[in-house]
Write a protein that binds this DNA or RNA. Structure first.
Lengths: 166, 166
DNA sequence: ATCGTATATTTCAAGCTCAAACCTTTTTTG
DNA sequence: CAAAAAAGGTTTGAGCTTGAAATATACGAT
């Protein structure tokens, strides 16, 4: 697996020990730029077409996958953002009647956050548009290639795994 | 834009006209998760080892590539963030003596932002650590694979290109 | 010269983000 | 049981981010 020097023509490993890191850095910068570009497009369209934001959408998308709701801590875990962060977003979504906090019977500390019916309806429309946008923005990738990339990204994600409820 | 009636719950109904979009959506979610994970690691390490932030580092990295400095508008263009945003970050970097605003001779509106010598030295250390971190975080990618990915990401970036000073 | 438009940047309000401090409730432990 | 530790959430302070409005300068055509 590791390129152990004795390869046929490894100019890269012999001549430059940091050629690999340079190449990975280059990849990272491109990946970051691509991600930012897609995110910017999504942000703009969510605002334009639905008057919402990407973080709001992310929270609703997470909740949409759990009919029974998610605890605040689980929500921040899934989204990989701080829990103090989620508090504010859920507050605003709750003000608009898109989500509700439900008291957990046995535990007076915790509460489950759930989409309201209105929240489900609103999110369904946003999600459909979102999927179409992504497909358009990434149309240079064939489905086959997309699958390959998905799998390779999992390597990054599962690398130094601590906890991951997925 | 308008809810066209037939969009409420289009679960996997048709054969596979949307298989491609599903696959791309899957790829996007993985890509986003990977990016966020790397960014979170970078953010934490920049804070721990250098007491700085990712946006600050991004600004300094951009300036480090232009010895003659960059105008605020060019800076925000390179970083793809709003220009109001850059103002605040540059303000704080300037307070710490890491960058300076230099008046442009012929134009009293514009100013060039440049790294100070201190800024160059500080950034050099951060950049070395940064490159090593990236290589570690992406070590599952061989240099060859990294190169392939870089090229493919360029496709996304150069898709609907408006302006890009790079 | 002056009007109008375009350019360069800052300011502003609202919202997102984090880490750390804090409060409350639950669980563990002496 | 009571004290201590852990868990669930919110609050707080600082910084980041955006889009829109404001400011100031530059330039082009009268």
């Amino acid at each position: 697996m590791a390129p152990n020097g004795t390869d046929a023509n490894t100019r890269t490993s012999a001549a430059a020990p940091d050629a690999a890191s340079k190449e990975r850095l280059r990849m990272w910068l491109r990946m970051l730029k691509s991600t930012r570009r897609v995110e910017a497009a999504l942000r703009e369209r969510l605002r334009r077409d639905f008057g919402t934001t990407l973080p709001r959408f992310d929270v609703m998308a997470a909740l949409a996958r759990y009919d029974d709701g998610l605890k605040m801590s689980a929500l921040s875990g899934v989204l990989r953002v701080s829990n103090g962060n989620v508090t504010g977003i859920v507050d605003r979504l709750a003000e608009e009647g898109l989500v509700v906090r439900v008291q957990v019977p046995g535990d007076r500390r915790a509460s489950l956050v759930r989409l309201t019916r209105k929240g489900q309806e609103v999110f369904a429309r946003q999600a459909a548009a979102h999927e179409a946008w992504i497909s358009e923005l990434l149309e240079d990738f064939t489905p086959e290639e997309a699958r390959i990339f998905s799998d390779r990204f999992d390597a990054v994600t599962h690398r130094n795994e601590e906890e991951d409820p997925e």
